[in-house]
Amino acid sequence: MNKTRTMVALFLMWLPMLTLSLPSHALPNIDYKIVTASERGTYIQIGRDISKWVAAPADITLEVLPSKGSTENVQRLRYEPGVKLALVQSDVYQAFVDQAAGGNRSASQLIQPLRVVMPLYDEEIYFVTRADAPLEFIHQIKDKKINVGPVGSGTALSATTIYKQMFGKSLPDANASYLSNEEALLKLTGDKSIDVVVVVAGQPAKLFVDMTPEARKFIKLLRFDEKSAESQHATKTYFPATIRSSSYPNWISEDVPTLTVKAFLVTYDYRMAHTQAYLNRFADALCLNFDNLQSQGHAKWKQVKMELPPLGKGWTYYPPIEKVLRACIARRSAIAKAGATPTPQISAPEAKACSQQEKVLGLCGM
């Protein structure tokens, strides 16, 4: 009898969520957009999972848009009509916050009204060089010609930040290029005008998964040596991680130590009741379909936890979604403690000289 009562109580805990997440005639389907990153990156796959397993059950047709990356995503979320969600790297978000705190009005206008939905997963940072290059470690890239990724990308921010932290100075403009990953890899192995290509992507990343075994003859990964003084400087913002050989069996034969950066799902501080209603339903569906995301979405979902940890200074959760997700977290915790695992599911300023950081954030000329 006690077991029956417990299961009934647990069902009743979920019942409000089930009711909220069922199709509602009061809220017709609406079109929203989410900005991600390149077509061959991890962000766009995560966006497609969110569109299928979270937005669709919430009566939202979520268009998944490619982009140059996190920095562009911040700007498009702030100003592009229809864009309600964005995937953003933690170091990019923090860079905007820091620029705003330092008095940059453009950065303040961009970041101040943005809000965090939830942290997602860690993204690995790849330092790619030629197979025959004498380089072996990341801290050996000083004074090399480095492709940091397109202006407006999170990769450009990460690459230039790591370089500055490691060596105490900005990457010289003459040594920096801002090509796409594909263009840069061709130059790395073709005319050899580039020494290192930096890529930020959650493993397994399609860019590298699609490579054939012949790739080993042309490119290799640099390793992170956490014992070097330069590497220790970089761990102030980034964290040690491992690129697993099992992620890229065609390319690497052993695990490679590297650095990582956190990915966040971000929205705007919407105050209109109509928009809040849809985003509340989005949060309901995220809670109800979280297990689907982990079991059927991209492998990176397995690293995501249904939790809302404290954020850094200048960061804020979006209150309507935060309220729904914290209630969800409490319910999941209660269910776990009770030893039951119900998984309800539903279907699918004035011109001035720009610093390198301002340049990669796209703040020059604003």
Rank of each mutant, 00 (worst) to 15 (best):
A26W: 00
D31T: 11
T36L: 05
S38V: 06
S38D: 08
S38L: 03
R40P: 00
L62Y: 02
E63N: 10
Q75G: 01
R76N: 05
R76T: 10
Q94H: 06
D98S: 14
G102T: 09
S108V: 01
M118L: 15
D122M: 11
F127N: 01
A131H: 10
P134T: 11
V151L: 15
S153D: 05
A159P: 02
M166H: 13
S170F: 03
L171E: 08
N181H: 07
N181W: 05
L186T: 08
L188D: 07
V199C: 00
A201N: 06
E214Y: 05
R216S: 12
K217S: 07
K217T: 06
K220R: 11
L221M: 03
K227A: 11
A229T: 15
T235C: 03
T235N: 02
K236S: 14
Y238R: 09
P240Y: 05
T242H: 00
P249K: 04
V256G: 00
T260Q: 13
A263S: 13
L265D: 04
R281G: 05
A285L: 02
D291T: 15
K300A: 14
K302M: 14
G312K: 15
A336Y: 09
K337L: 08
G339A: 12
S347Y: 02
A348R: 10
A351H: 06
C354H: 04
C354D: 04
L363G: 12
